[in-house]
């Protein structure tokens, strides 16, 4: 590491926590110490931010605060692993644990503060995560009960806890499981994936207080190792442009229905065709402007939780449900028009 990077850590509090986490594990003792101090400060600030709106709420029922537990399988694949951090516990000397803990909190905050939802199930479900799953494991998943993160192989993927939107993505699979229950195959599976990308991105936007035009609209920024040619796993704004690499290949996501991919792999291309509804959401959010979680996000949230979607809903059915949700909440105004326009631009008519 060069001296300018050290100076950056010392005097600038804008260094992203994941970089601090890296430095806190660095071999260089002074760098490590500075980064650890910065991290504990940062954690305190973030806790204050998370606590502030909560103190305004009546201190009543369970579920008004997250109930987080992070476990460590120490490279085995036997879940859940040993508990390494519980709710309210201070930061530990393991960046993966702290990042997972913070991102669980950020996801909880979006659902609670923007939509009034108490955790994943709406009833205060504890948020459990496991880190260091397997050896060089290149994935993160929701197993129906908890989030599981691999460390990545370091060649293609970094640690899967580095992106807050990835953690929001996984937990949103839990929200979908408890609400619309979209079948994880074909178009309903691509919608399930898209809903996770949408709210995963909104978790990041909400944590950073970014407007639609400030947001990166990426899933997994920072997750690709330095030698990979790419910026992230997916782009909601421009599906198909996230990476183009000789090992990984090119981002295969279509941006509209004319590029819809028919395949039997990956449950019918659920991670590929999700690009279409992803872009529809981005277009609606961009058209409305401001904070995307407020109106565009509210319409998608109402659609997901409204009880009218069938588990095997296709894109057209989902589009129609978002239009109905927009009309129900905002009437025949800008919002409803933006929803119709967004879907039309990606070739889906509800």
């Amino acid at each position: 590491m060069d001296s300018s990077a050290r100076g950056h850590v010392c005097f600038c509090t804008i260094v992203p926590p994941h970089i601090l986490d890296r430095l806190a594990e660095a071999g260089d003792a002074p760098v490590r110490e500075v980064a650890r101090r910065a991290l504990s400060l940062d954690a305190r600030h973030r806790e204050n931010r998370l606590l502030a709106p909560r103190t305004a709420l009546p201190p009543t029922a369970d579920g008004d605060h997250p109930e987080r537990t992070v476990c460590d399988t120490r490279h085995s694949e036997t879940l859940p692993g040993r508990v390494v951090r519980r709710e309210g516990g201070s930061a530990v000397h393991d960046g993966s644990v702290n990042r997972a803990y913070d991102a669980l909190g950020a996801t909880y905050a979006l659902y609670r503060e923007a939509y009034g939802r108490r955790s994943i199930d709406g009833a205060g479900l504890p948020l459990d995560a496991t880190v260091h799953y397997g050896h060089d494991y290149d994935n993160a998943f929701w197993n129906g009960e908890r989030m599981v993160f691999g460390d990545g192989d370091g060649q293609i993927f970094n640690d899967f806890t580095v992106s807050v939107d990835v953690i929001g993505h996984e937990l949103t699979h839990g929200v979908t499981q408890y609400t619309a229950g979209l079948d994880y195959q074909g178009q309903s599976g691509a919608l399930n994936e898209s809903v996770s990308d949408v709210f995963g991105s909104l978790v990041k936007q909400y944590a950073l207080r970014q407007t639609a035009d400030q947001a990166d609209w990426l899933i997994g920024a920072g997750l690709l190792a330095p030698r990979v040619h790419g910026v992230a796993l997916r782009s909601l704004r421009e599906p198909g442009t996230a990476y183009d690499d000789e090992v990984l290949g090119k981002d295969p996501q279509p941006a509209s229905m004319d590029g819809y991919v028919q395949t039997t792999e990956d449950n019918g291309g659920v991670h590929i065709n999700s690009g279409i509804p992803n872009r529809a959401f981005y277009l609606v959010a961009a058209e409305l402007g401001g904070f995307a979680w407020e109106r565009a996000g509210q319409i998608w949230y109402d659609t997901l939780t409204g009880g009218t979607l069938h588990p095997d809903a296709d894109f057209a059915a989902f589009a129609a449900a978002t239009a109905a949700a927009a009309r129900a909440r905002y009437g025949e105004g800008r919002e409803t028009a933006a929803v119709a326009k967004g879907w039309a631009q990606v070739g889906v008519t509800g």
Partner: peptide, 26 residues
């Protein structure tokens, strides 16, 4: 097999015969 959301699916073929399995139940 369905597996879990975002879980890996595997197809193993040995001398022409194929089976399936999925994370985290390997």
């Amino acid at each position: 097999t369905f597996g879990v959301p975002d879980g890996f699916h595997y197809e193993i073929t040995v001398d022409g015969r194929t089976v399936h399995c999925a994370d985290p139940r390997l």
